[in-house]
Amino acid sequence: MTCRPQYVKECKCPDEVMSCIRETLGESLLEMEMRERMDGMPRRVLYRDLWVHLKREGFLKLVDRLMEIDFLHFHVMSGNDDGEVVTLNLHCSLFREAGSGHRLGVTLSIPIPKDDLVFPSLSSRIPGTEYSEREMREMLGIHFEGLPNTDLLFLPENWDEEIKPWRRDETGPSPESIRELS
């Protein structure tokens, strides 16, 4: 599904976005938290961040739903090896051009089981995700289905691709491969 690449000029209220997410995800929603970011004088809420923890099954459906609200601006992916799963976080924004204080930070956090480290690529919907998907592929070993370019991004050309630098298990760097400088 493709969305017209432009930003809406009027935002929806955060509660409306939350209900929309609840409705779209159903049982795929694990947890949702709204954080109010307060600053300034007098101290007041200046913007909000929404943290959505969800199952992989609901991910594409949610992205497509959010893209109907506004073109989802993608910032970056972060991730961690959490034992049984690799957790992938996509940090995005809605209402980027919808006026002062209206941007809504949206983080989608998805646990991916290590025995099936596959995740759908967003590159056809949001081409700006390419670098992050390539980075998460080489650093954490996540296979992005539909990612056209799987060349290494940050690691050197002669890197042994069996080693995933950010993993904390046997696929991560071994102590022998680490050179302490001090």
């Binding site: 690449p5 432009q6 930003y7 970011r37 600053d39 300034g40 200046l46 913007y47 073109f71 601006h73 993608f74 910032h75 924004s93 209402f95 980027r96 051009e97 919808a98 006026g99 002062s100 204080g101 209206h102 941007r103 930070g105 949001i126 081409p127 700006g128 995700t129």
Partner: peptide, 24 residues
């Protein structure tokens, strides 16, 4: 928009995006 451009690069393309404004 599609390639998630930022800062003066995005504003140079006419997008009114600035975090100091949209999320101070």
């Amino acid at each position: 928009v599609k390639y998630c451009a930022l800062g003066p690069t995005a504003r140079g393309s006419g997008l009114r995006v600035d975090l100091r404004h949209s999320s101070p």
